[in-house]
Design a protein around this nucleic acid. Structure first.
Lengths: 165, 165
DNA sequence: TGCAATTCGTCAGCATACTGACGATTATCG
DNA sequence: CGATAATCGTCAGTATGCTGACGAATTGCA
């Protein structure tokens, strides 16, 4: 299926060009990473997104949803559903803010704390599996590049990361 | 906000640990990449996913949906909606397969071909912008690593890439 | 040949994301 | 103080992506 390139014709974009585009590869790596997490952590019934939110809530008791979004770089609209599902699973509580009645104050429950503790090996295993195909010395190079790309492209996301309040 | 580490306590997972996890960074890079594409190509009204499908359909006239999924590593369920939207925009046609009546044969339209041609600069610019924060020599290193990670982790996705039929 | 296994497209259900908008509330400034 | 601006959480709408299931059609094998 190679070889239909023709003189004087603008070269049609073929499979290989498409498949090697960074954007395409990043999309696939994201899907793989997500699937690996679900597989490793399937006994706990949480997604990578829910796990990230849970860790941040544990670390910042009483945090409101918008500040949570700034810390873990989520979208403000999306977080509503995420914390709703965490609440349904009794991993967090959500009460109206005392000082600012527009906000909801998020707190982790004992069950949530237990989950964070117990899921740790699965989370660590997931990160190892993602990078497993690379040689050990390349893994930290890749991680550095990832951090660099994300930090310097931060502003291009609707949900940019922001330091503390 | 650093320094609440305590002797004899299992170290709680903090923001920095979470934020530097490969899985988390990959999710963010995917969002950034997606947003950059939409921004660069906003005049054309297609998503990265729709663009990938369109390119593959252009390259393989009459392809059926499942084979299309194997080529661009999509999920079989998801592709239905994607090609439906391409059809609604009159960029492709979808007719029942002649030989196998279970399948739908996909063909690109003249409008679809025009779009692929005209959107090219925006697609190229997107790929450049994604990798822009890296030094030029690092960009190909990163691309190689991405390809390596995706190929060797291929089987872990529900929608693994598969060579031709 | 005939029947079981497989495949194709689709459906319902759920979860993550983003846009644009809104009411409620708080902050700011004249 | 009071009007305006900004912020918080949410909603509707749209798009991607997955699981599990299904009817329709085809394949493979006994």
């Amino acid at each position: 299926m190679v070889g239909d390139w023709e003189e004087k014709m603008p070269e049609p974009i073929g499979d290989s060009r498409l498949i090697e585009m960074p954007g395409h590869l990043i999309r696939r790596l994201h899907q793989i990473s997500f699937a690996l997490f679900l597989d490793q952590a399937k006994a706990f019934g949480v997604t990578p997104v829910q796990y990230a939110a849970l860790v941040a809530i544990n670390r910042h008791p009483g945090i409101d949803q918008t500040t949570l979004c700034n810390i873990i770089a989520f979208d403000r609209t999306t977080i509503g559903g995420v914390v709703g599902r965490l609440q349904r699973k009794k991993l967090i509580t959500r009460v109206n803010g005392a000082h600012d009645r527009r906000t909801k104050a998020l707190h982790i429950t004992p069950a949530g704390r237990r989950l964070i503790r117990d899921i740790e090996p699965a989370v660590a295993a997931t990160q190892r599996l993602i990078l497993k195909p690379l040689a050990p010395r390349q893994r930290s190079v890749f991680k550095q590049m990832l951090k660099h790309l994300v930090h310097l492209n931060n502003a291009h996301s609707r949900a940019p990361w922001r330091p503390k309040r």
